[in-house]
Design a protein around this nucleic acid. Structure first.
Lengths: 376, 376
DNA sequence: AAAATTTTCGTGTGCGCACACATTATTAAA
DNA sequence: TTTAATAATGTGTGCGCACACGAAAATTTT
């Protein structure tokens, strides 16, 4: 199945469809290229008369600026500042957005867009503050933030607004800001879908359990929105058995956590389904004795390597992916479109809610894998 | 780091990270830019000595050709020929790949890539032949084909090979060719996943039915691979009840088809799940009396508007999407990478197997919608 | 009416690279 | 050794556009 010779590529020496250039427009309007350039960019200094004439000709030919030539010639260099959490081996979720942003940064580099990272410790608001401060000193063209800390975000965003630097939120949707857009998932619907999937697994009205930590719901709305959607599904079905809730102190495999979970499950033997509305479902799996695991059907979030492992060994039935890689990539794309083409994005940019199973997970996030392998 | 404020966007007047250019490399190697260009493109005519010296410097600086400048300067104009089925209102599936290809064509136009369509009647092999012939007369740089007709494909592909024109297959995977790659879905796994979803809906070992038409399985392997995967799932679970199969003459809402289906279902009252391994599940829905519909859970393929309607009115539980828009887009992308960067693709390029439900379908295929609305 | 402004428009340069062509160094043939 | 042939390298132009600068035309001021 080897391809054919590389040297055998046929090359056209002329365009089949003529490319209309500024020069063509200028000739037809009997003005200089500079004047056409002026109307194209609203630089002013063009008489009403010639402006309308040129605009008519532009429209007639359906002219669009050649983005390649434009990028090459432009002296404008934009600078995107990205404030996102660091990732570590134990907490690898934020790696994917990082990789997506990296790839986009690479793709847009030759278009005069420079992406600078400011990566903070997601458990340390001081770290967030410090990086935000550093970021502000560089007067970026636009800022992408994962607004993990509300109070601090409020403060620094004020600074941005004063300098009229636009900003967008990534992954975490917080209200009451003048952010240009939010890029992420519709958490409520994702939770609702999880509810539907959970219910579809069981024939009748079964007891299901939601496990989350206090930290989860306090910091941002994502997890609570998922829970809301999840419970709403069951509410709408008018089931007798509404989801139970177990709040644990922390997501780890400590004795305390394990004990809390096993005790609860023993007390509620009817529970068959577990819903973990965070990215740490693998921890919960580890907290349950292997022999008991097969009694439960579990649904969680995010395609981290450890979660995928759970999918593959069938301890987890479904994972819902936020497509974090795509979130990152698309963020930069949207910002580039704004900077280069002045394209204003929608208020909310929702990425697909992907359902992952043992079978289809290997075809998901191909982009990320290829990028890591240097093939992209 | 100067921040000129123009329309509120801060613009950098200097690069933060210096862009290494051919000129820089040439200076460091004490040769002319032309010589660097020669080693970059293996044009030959460079002494072993200077070549290794230049290559070392290139590597040292991690130099990559500025694709923007390259595209602008290059006189190479490539021509991609695309042979795909036409779409109509009644058979709209092929619209999505077409749109995806359109968008990619638009994106790559300024890189010197010209895409020409040859759209044939999918029910008429003569139409396929004629368009293939027309295509061959233009000696394209590379060809993208939906190989719907095997015999004809064999013949014309020989022609392509003689002229050493590379070609790739889109959506339909046929064997025994020297195609550079195939872009589409892993149909077997998609069918297997459908089996799993179908089973997960029912608690016990339930009777399920596969409905397909003769035409479906004769023309290409896609449908039969799906059926194979689907039945394999049930085989592996060691169920007593294997899927039943109903072969109908044609997918339409004629009296005959309706009769065939209702008769069969009456004869097999235990059947609860219907699997339609083609894109025409909406037809089957129309063939079943509305009152009976809620007795069945149905799974089908492809996000056509009518199928999505079925999802939304809950007559269909799951649709498996082939991501046809993405298939089209990615095809062109892969071909462009080959033409512009000589990047050889993998044998098979499998796109994700998306599970669509009433809830998440609206977030799917965003790209296609945006493109249609002119926002992309 | 001439000078001073302001508005309107043309010209020139360079972005980084591809590629044709010109030139020089090296080797082979005479 | 001289010349012809070839290999190795340098030079120049232009892709389409952005943008600085300067020239010309229109307008206002003196």
């Amino acid at each position: 199945m080897v391809g054919l010779r590389i040297t055998g590529i046929h090359i056209l020496t002329a365009w089949s469809i003529k490319m209309v250039t500024i020069k063509d427009i200028a000739r037809e309007a009997q003005v200089s290229e500079g004047t056409v350039d002026r109307v194209l960019h609203n630089r002013g200094g063009v008489s009403k008369q010639t402006e309308t004439k040129i605009k008519a000709i532009l429209k007639k030919h359906n002219f669009t600026i050649n983005p390649v030539a434009s990028a090459l010639a432009s002296k404008n260099k934009y600078h995107i500042a990205v404030l996102i959490p660091k990732f570590s081996d134990t907490d690898i979720f934020w790696k994917s957005p990082y990789m997506g942003i990296q790839k986009a940064a690479h793709d847009y580099r030759s278009f005069g867009i420079d992406v600078r990272f400011y990566r903070f410790d997601q458990y340390d608001s001081r770290s967030y503050e410090n990086h935000f401060k550093a970021l502000l000193r560089t007067t970026p063209s636009i800022v992408l933030v994962v607004p993990l800390f509300l109070k601090e975000t409020k403060r620094f965003v004020g600074e941005l607004e004063q300098q009229s630097i636009p900003y967008m939120f990534l992954n975490i949707d917080v209200q009451g800001f003048h952010n240009m857009t939010f890029i992420g998932q519709d958490s409520y619907t994702a939770g609702y879908l999880a509810g539907k999937l959970m219910h579809s697994i069981f024939s009748e009205d079964t007891n299901v359990l939601i496990i989350h930590s206090k930290h989860n719901t306090s910091v941002n709305q994502t997890v609570s929105k998922r829970i809301e959607g999840f419970t709403d599904f069951f509410a709408k079905q008018h089931f007798k058995n509404r989801p139970l809730i177990l709040k644990i102190d922390a997501f780890n495999t400590s004795k305390e956590t394990k004990a809390a979970i096993t005790t609860f499950l023993k007390k509620h033997p009817k529970v068959k389904g577990l819903f973990i509305p965070s990215s740490r479902i693998n921890i919960i799996v580890d907290c349950i004795a292997p022999a008991l695991l097969k009694h439960y059907r579990m649904i969680g979030f995010d395609n981290t390597p450890k979660n995928i492992e759970c999918l593959e060994n069938e301890s987890v039935s479904f994972l819902i992916s936020q497509k974090p890689f795509d979130q990152g990539y698309e963020s930069i794309q949207v910002m580039a479109d704004y900077l280069l083409k002045k394209k204003i994005p929608n208020d909310k940019i929702y990425l697909p809610i992907d359902i992952l199973t043992k079978e289809n997970v290997k075809y998901n996030e191909r982009n990320e894998l290829l990028f890591e392998m240097g093939n992209l």
